[in-house]
Design a protein around this nucleic acid. Structure first.
Lengths: 117, 117
DNA sequence: ATTACATATGAACAATTATTCATATAATTA
DNA sequence: TAATTATATGAATAATTGTTCATATGTAAT
């Protein structure tokens, strides 16, 4: 009985070589996955849809999304960190809005895929 | 000392009402978040980038991505379930490819956002 | 039939993450 | 200054998830 590797042998060297050359850097892939992670949660997706309509304060977002102020605040921090939302202060109230329109485009492309099933 | 709710009062009723009307159904939001969840992992994102170049077998993908056959196989199942990849058999070998071109578009929009930081 | 190879999958484990609760901060008002 | 309101945040908990390991399935070749 032979030594059993169980792991894959490279089957198509030429193709593998070519594809490897075209692969983006790991850091870029990581950043991209991190970005999509932000869209990968229902609560955040609801926040994004709400902000697609209007600039909103935290209270209003919590009311629209139907969860607590604290949960919304935690999620807004994540959205801030990935530069998806910006905010401005007006007295005690802080208004959030979407940072750029890539967001609308990403959401739109995603929803197109969903609707085609 | 008064009863302390700590929770938000609705600050802008009109706006909240309007935005609520425009919100998509919960099921749709859920499906969309689930879709983005698929893009939200480095291994899967590498698989997607590889398949953007070529139809590939599992062995080759494992080699390109730099992980085990088992890990790739698990991830391909997730990609299959969300209709992002399709496959065809040729003897012992199974070739995977991307299912539609929304995928390329979603990845592209995401990467545009990354590159603008 | 038996062996070898490509791929799939179940269970276990470690790591990540969303929410809750309690409390802190910052701005306003009395 | 003290009380109130809007928002933020740290810690704890529960749930989800990616990888690994072992093994199963399916196909081809000997």
């Amino acid at each position: 009985m032979e030594e059993n590797f169980l792991e894959c042998t490279v089957l198509h060297e030429e193709i593998v070589k070519k594809v490897k050359q075209k692969m983006p850097e790991d850091g870029f892939i990581y950043d991209l996955a991190e970005l999509f992670k932000v869209f990968a949660d229902s609560t955040r997706m609801k926040i994004i849809y709400a902000l697609l309509e209007e600039e909103l304060c935290v209270c209003d977002i919590a009311n629209i999304v139907g969860t607590t102020q604290s949960a919304i605040s935690h999620q807004l921090r994540i959205l801030k960190q990935s530069k998806l939302v910006k905010f401005r202060r007006e007295g005690k109230i802080i208004f959030y809005s979407l940072d750029d329109d890539h967001i609308a485009q990403i959401v739109k492309k995603g929803s197109e895929h969903i609707e085609e099933l």
